[in-house]
Simulated scan of single mutants.
Amino acid sequence: MSHEPPTPPAELPTDIVDTLNESSPELLRHVASYAEELAEHREREARLAEKEGEDEIEERPDELPDDVPSKATITIKEINDNRYYYWQWREGEKVTSKYKGPVDQDE
């Protein structure tokens, strides 16, 4: 590992780079975790908005639990360096999650 600090991406605004450079390692880890979750949320929102316009009725997958709607998608969350699958779907303004199981280490 290099003793030089990493070079920030060119797309990152200078004020954000300056703030991050002044932050503690603990705060940087919180920011990284939040940024990853926010990116997943926005990608999921985009997928949900894309699917909202589809009129096709899909068959209910066999693996889908009875209390999970067929419109649910699977997402991966990382908690304490462990990765888990969750079913997620929108109920009005709220996004609901239900645990599915651990992610196989070979994936």
Rank of each mutant, 00 (worst) to 15 (best):
E45K: 06
R44T: 01
A72S: 07
P61A: 12
R44V: 01
S70C: 14
P65G: 07
D67M: 07
L48F: 05
E45T: 04
K51W: 02
V68A: 12
E43D: 08
D67Q: 11
A39V: 02
P65I: 13
P61Y: 09
E56V: 10
E58R: 11
V68I: 15
D55C: 02
D66F: 10
E63I: 15
P69D: 14
E56S: 03
T73Q: 08
S70M: 09
E43Q: 09
D66I: 12
A72D: 08
K71C: 14
A49T: 01
D62E: 15
L64M: 14
P69K: 14
R42E: 14
E63N: 14
P69V: 12
P65H: 14
E63Y: 13
E56K: 08
K51V: 00
R47E: 04
E58S: 07
K71L: 15
I57M: 06
E54Y: 02
A46I: 04
D62H: 09
R60Y: 09
S70W: 06
V68D: 11
K51L: 14
P61S: 06
D66A: 14
P65N: 11
P69A: 15
A46W: 04
R47W: 01
E50W: 00
L38P: 00
E59K: 07
P61N: 10
E58W: 05
E54I: 11
R60A: 08
P61C: 11
R42W: 10
P61V: 13
E56G: 00
E59T: 05
H41K: 08
P61Q: 10
E59F: 03
R42A: 03
D67V: 05
D62G: 04
E56M: 06
P69I: 13
V68M: 12
L38C: 09
E45M: 12
E63L: 11
D66H: 06
I57Y: 03
D55W: 05
R60W: 07
A46V: 02
D67Y: 08
R42L: 13
E59S: 08
E58A: 09
R42Q: 12
E45P: 00
G53Q: 03
L48I: 07
K51F: 04
P61M: 13
E56R: 09
P69M: 15
A49V: 01
R42P: 00
R60I: 09
P65Q: 12
H41Q: 12
E40N: 12
E56Y: 01
V68W: 11
P61E: 11
G53Y: 01
G53M: 05
D67E: 13
A72T: 10
G53K: 04
P65S: 11
